[in-house]
Write a protein that binds this DNA or RNA. Sequence first.
DNA 1: ATGAAAGCGCTAACAT
DNA 2: ATGTTAGCGCTTTCAT
Lengths: 329, 329
Amino acid sequence: MKVTIKDIAKICGVSAGTVDRALNNRVGISEKTRKKVLKVAEEMNYQPDYTARSLVMGKTMTIGVVLFDLYNRSFAQLLNAIEQKARDLGYFVYITLTDKDPENEKKCIDYLVSRKVDGIILFTVNKGKEFEAHLSKYHVPIITIFNYVSEKWEYIGIQERQAMKEAVDYLTSKNYQEFIYVSPPLAYLGKTNIYTQVERLNGFYEGLMVNNIQSKPIVLKNSEYIKDLDHINFSKDRKTAIVCSTDLYALEVMNYLKVKGFNIPEDIGVMGFDDIDMLKYITPRLTTVKYPIDEVGRKAVESMIHKIDNGTFLSPPLLDYEMIRGEST
Amino acid sequence: MKVTIKDIAKICGVSAGTVDRALNNRVGISEKTRKKVLKVAEEMNYQPDYTARSLVMGKTMTIGVVLFDLYNRSFAQLLNAIEQKARDLGYFVYITLTDKDPENEKKCIDYLVSRKVDGIILFTVNKGKEFEAHLSKYHVPIITIFNYVSEKWEYIGIQERQAMKEAVDYLTSKNYQEFIYVSPPLAYLGKTNIYTQVERLNGFYEGLMVNNIQSKPIVLKNSEYIKDLDHINFSKDRKTAIVCSTDLYALEVMNYLKVKGFNIPEDIGVMGFDDIDMLKYITPRLTTVKYPIDEVGRKAVESMIHKIDNGTFLSPPLLDYEMIRGEST
DNA sequence: ATGAAAGCGCTAACAT
DNA sequence: ATGTTAGCGCTTTCAT
C-alpha cells in the first residue's frame, strides 16, 4: 500500500540510512547505489512522509496565516501573494480564518503552534498586554501585518498616517473645504485592534491641521454610516468631500449618493483607500490610495523565511503607497 | 522550553500513557490523577504536538485544497466557505495554488499527499487518462469540484448546462434574437480541463435550439474578445444579447459598451454567470445566474469528512442555481 | 488504574 | 561507503 524507506531498503538490500542518503542527496554514498535506490523508489512510487520528517527535524516547511476572512478582496489578494511566494521558496501555507473573533483568533494561533508551523503571519484583532503575554508563550517567529501589536513583534505595512494625510493634501489642493470621514471600525476603538484605522484617522486629522481647514469634520464611526449620511445637510457653496477609510465604504457611499441623485464629484467628492482591483469596473473612477498589498504579503514571507533560515528578520522599511487620482474628487 | 507528555509524566510521578489517558479523555484512569495531570498540563502551558500524533495515528486532521488562484472573487469565497466548514468540524486547511499550470497542479497534489492530508478538494485544469492514472496512485479521498474529471472521482457542482439553457430561455422571452457568446477559456478546448465552460456553451446552444433561434450566434473564444467585439456590426432592428460565461467577462463587455456609447440594455443586452458579489456596486445591475459557490465548498467539506469518518462520500445531488433578473437585459 | 514497551517513518550520530 | 542505533512525541497494546 504505502511505500516507506524500509521497503526500499529491503528490496535494494541496503539499510534505511543509505536509502535516506540516496533520496536526499547526502554525501557518503556511491553513485551506483544511489542510482539503484532512486530507480526502485521511482518504480514503487515512493512518496516521502513529511509527517515523520517533520517530527524528527522539528520543522514542517509550513507557514501559518491568520486572517479575518477572505470576503474582503484585499485579503484574498494578500493570501494569494503569500502562497505564491511561499511555494516559490519551498514552503506550504496553512490558512486559518478568525471572523474577527478575538477568542477564535487565539485558538487559531494555538492550533498553528500545535501543528509546529515554522512561522506565523498574523493579521489580528487582538492587542494589549494579555494578548502579548499569550503570544510570548510561543517561540515561533511571528510577523504582524497591517494591525500593529507592539514593538516586540516584527511588523510590515505602510505609513498609513502619512498616506491619509497626503490624501487630505490632495483634496484641499482641489479646494475641498468640508470633510466627512467614514470609518465604521472605529466603533471598536479601545476594544479590538484597529491600528490601521486609527492611523488613517490620525492622518486625516493631521491633514486638516496642516492645511488649515477650520471647519470641523464629521466623523462617522459605525456601521450605520449610510443612515447617518442621510441626516447630513451637505453644504451648497463649500465643496464637500466624503473621505472613506476603505474603498468598500466608498463604494457604498457612491451607491447611496447616486440613488439620492447627487453627482460625483460635482456635488460631492468621494475618496477611498486601498485601490482594490474591482474599481476598474466602477464609474466614476474612485480617487484612492494604492496599498501595495501583494508586496506586503511577499515581504512578510521573505522576511519570515530569512528568520527561519538565518535567525533574523529582514525588517524591510514600511512600504510605499501611491495616490490614485480618479474622477470621484 | 517546549513541554511534552514526558515532562508532565515526570512531574506528576506517572507514566506517559497515563498522561495520554488524562489529556484525551480516555477510560481507565482515576478522576484524581486525571485532575492532577490536567492541572499540571495547564500550568506548564502544554501544547500537544500534532506532528507526532499524526505520525502514529496516520491522520492529520487536515484537508488539502487545490485551486487556480485567489484573484477570482468566487475562488476566494469558495475557500472561505471551505475553511469555515472545515474548522467547524475540527479540520485544518492546506491551500495550494496552481496558476492553472498543469504540471504545477500535479506537484501540488503530490505535496499534499506527502503531507498526509486526510482528503483533497480539487479544482483542476488537468484531465484525461494520464492525469487519472496519476490520481489513481493515491489512496487519499479526492473530491473534484466545478471541473469534472471522470466518474471515478466524486464531483460536486451545479447543472451548468441546464442553467445556461434557462438563461437563453429567459433572454428569448425578452425577445432577444441575435446572440453573441463570450468565453475565452474555450481557447483551451481539448488542451486543459474546461468542463464548466464547455457545459455552459452546450447549454447555450441547447437554449438556442429549443427556442428556435435561427440566427447563427457569434462565439468569441479567446482573450481578445473585446477586440473581436469591435469588429462586429450589431443589428439595429433585431435585439442583440451578449451572453458571457462569467460575470468578469460581462463586466469587461459592459465597460467596453459604455465607452462606445451603447446603452444597456436598450441597444444591447448583457448577461453574466456566477453572480459575484461585487455586482451590487455596478450599474446597471447585471442579469446573471447565481452559482451557490459557498454551498459547493461546504458540501465538499461535509462529504469529505463523512468519507474520512465513515468510508463513504455523502454524494449530494447537483446544487441549485438561480436566475438573477437584472437590468442589463 | 497504571506502567512498560513497542512503534509510526524518518533523520543523524556514531560505528565499521 | 554503508550499517547500526537512538530518538523525535505521541498512541496503543499488553502486562501487572
